[in-house]
């Protein structure tokens, strides 16, 4: 299995803002939408997030794929939330208009946040993200942990695939039952052991190279004209959401 690629290839776009600016923008956007109750402001926010993601080079197909899980979840949630009562005496079950409106706000808000996050932050690879977090004064240990685990995701995925394939070759089929749990228990145990052994090797290798608990960042980001363009666009969008909410 290959890992999901970043939502955008940055090469084709004119606008290449600083990753730090993108992270801050997504964080502030998340707070803004969480605090916005008005459906029309949320609808505008969703459209703006989509356009901004597009302007930064996100591809339609990847954005759609990432939104699929969320909207599948929301589709499941809709009847659970919007039906007035599931009591047998209330048959035929009816949708409550207020709840439907409330649900619309939830769906718009969730998609608005997801699109902005996918368009702006998920478009960078995890190494850039961790790197930018270091510059944003995220605790260094947390950033190191993130960079390290991102680095070994693919490798451990391959380890898991190897373990799982070996089990399948011996006739294992995943289905609900004690045998599955027992086999998965052994596989998870095996994966844990392999991770720890690998971690031990990594630590020794790092120590050989003079590791003393610091992780030096070589690349630095620079503020550029793209950041001003991006910042102004983002501020205009935010202002519009606020106007639609309180205006």
């Amino acid at each position: 299995m290959s890992w999901p690629t970043p939502t955008a290839s940055r090469s084709g776009t004119l606008l290449k803002p600083d990753p730090r600016a993108l992270i801050l923008a997504v964080a502030a956007w998340t707070v803004l939408l969480v605090l916005t109750p008005a459906p029309r402001a949320l609808a505008f926010g969703l459209a703006a997030a989509l356009l901004l993601a597009k302007a930064l080079g996100a591809s339609w197909s990847l954005l759609a794929r990432r939104c699929l899980a969320l909207n599948g979840f929301l589709a499941l949630l809709f009847p659970l939330m919007a039906v007035e009562s599931f009591a047998l005496s209330a048959w035929p079950w009816r949708l409550s208009p207020e709840r439907t409106l409330l649900f619309a706000a939830v769906a718009l808000r969730a998609n608005g946040i997801l699109l902005m996050a996918q368009g702006l932050v998920a478009a960078m690879d995890l190494a850039t993200l961790g790197h930018a977090l270091v510059h944003l004064r995220c605790p260094p240990k947390l950033a190191h942990l993130m960079l390290f685990s991102a680095r070994y995701l693919t490798i451990l995925q391959e380890e898991w695939t190897a373990l799982y394939r070996a089990a399948r070759l011996r006739g294992f089929r995943m289905k609900w039952g004690p045998h599955t749990w027992r086999t998965l228990g052994a596989l998870v145990g095996g994966l844990v052991l392999r991770s720890l052994d690998r971690a031990e090797q990594i630590l020794l290798a790092m120590k050989c190279r003079g590791y003393q608990g610091q992780f030096h960042v070589l690349r630095h980001f620079r503020f550029s004209r793209a950041d001003i363009v991006f910042g102004l666009t983002w501020a205009a969008v935010t202002g519009m959401v606020l106007v639609l909410t309180y205006g």
């Binding site: 070994y152 991770s195 720890l196 690998r198 971690a199």
Partner: peptide
Amino acid sequence: PKTALLTA
């Protein structure tokens, strides 16, 4: 490294 690999 240990924590990060277990995370992964």
